[in-house]
């Protein structure tokens, strides 16, 4: 919550003059972005699959391999339950902060934007799942880096490059274009751009196509790494 308070007051200070427009945002839209982060972070980033590296490292993975269940579907389901729980908390957080801070919020009225927003949110949830799985599977080869890899990729690189800390618009154009080629902006930044109507419908559709492309490519990579990892998995500690 303190992170959101910091971000809120930071942008509130930048947009102290209500007529200010910076990086393509007005006061209403940037504060909606900050508040939107509360919900989208809870929805996208919360997951139970953060336990996977530890389970691979200490051999608990074997317990899953002997069961008649699909490992990926199992964790996807657990992640979904975690998201539902965290979403409930984040809505409470959203309401409490909205009552205390009374920000001017932007409500999207264009149904097409809302539909595209929901589609990209679904894709974002799948993308983060695949990214987390790939990062977790590093543990097959380097068990001592079980948490280290998660820390760097999931808690730092993904958070910053997804726009969960600040909107990516503040970067120069070339940087933005480069970041947009990666899967990260489609986790938080892009959904919020669509919701706020910061980009056109055509650009929103193009973004969804890129997110779909990444989902497909990363799914293939995830499966390949999983199969390679299983070949060297020795269930140490069991």
């Amino acid at each position: 919550m303190f992170q959101i308070i910091l971000t809120y007051f930071l942008w509130n200070s930048v947009f102290a003059d209500t007529n200010t427009e910076v990086f393509g945002y007005n006061r209403e839209k940037i504060l909606t972005y900050v508040f939107g982060i509360i919900i989208i972070r809870a929805l996208v980033f919360s997951a139970r699959s953060v336990d996977i590296p530890g389970e691979i490292a200490d051999g608990k993975l074997s317990n899953y391999l002997i069961r008649p269940i699909n490992y990926f579907k199992y964790w996807l389901t657990r992640d979904l339950s975690s998201k539902a729980l965290n979403l409930a908390f984040s809505i409470s957080e959203f309401i409490i902060l909205a009552i205390i801070l009374k920000p001017p919020l932007f409500f999207q009225s264009n149904l097409l934007y809302i539909l595209l927003f929901l589609i990209i949110l679904l894709l974002a949830n799948y993308l983060i799942f695949v990214i987390r799985m790939i990062v977790s599977f590093v543990t097959f080869w380097m068990p001592e880096l079980a948490w280290g890899a998660q820390f760097i990729f999931m808690m730092i690189i993904t958070e910053f490059l997804s726009g969960a800390v600040f909107p990516l618009d503040i970067f120069p154009d070339t940087w933005q274009k480069t970041i947009n080629l990666t899967p990260f902006p489609y986790l938080v930044f892009f959904p919020l751009q669509v919701y706020l109507g910061q980009i056109t419908i055509v650009e929103s559709m193009q973004g969804i196509m890129v997110a779909l492309f990444w989902s497909l490519i990363l799914s293939i990579i995830m499966k390949k790494i999983w199969l390679s990892g299983l070949k060297i998995y020795s269930s140490e500690g069991r």
């Binding site: 280290g148 760097i152 730092i156 800390v165 600040f166 503040i170």
Partner: peptide, 25 residues
């Protein structure tokens, strides 16, 4: 403990991201 090196890299990346954010902001 190679994990410490990883955490060190993580801290440097986070510091750079925040510093970059302030610079561009």
């Amino acid at each position: 403990n190679p994990t410490i090196i990883v955490f060190l890299i993580g801290k440097i990346i986070r510091f750079t991201f925040f510093g970059g954010f302030i610079y561009f902001l």
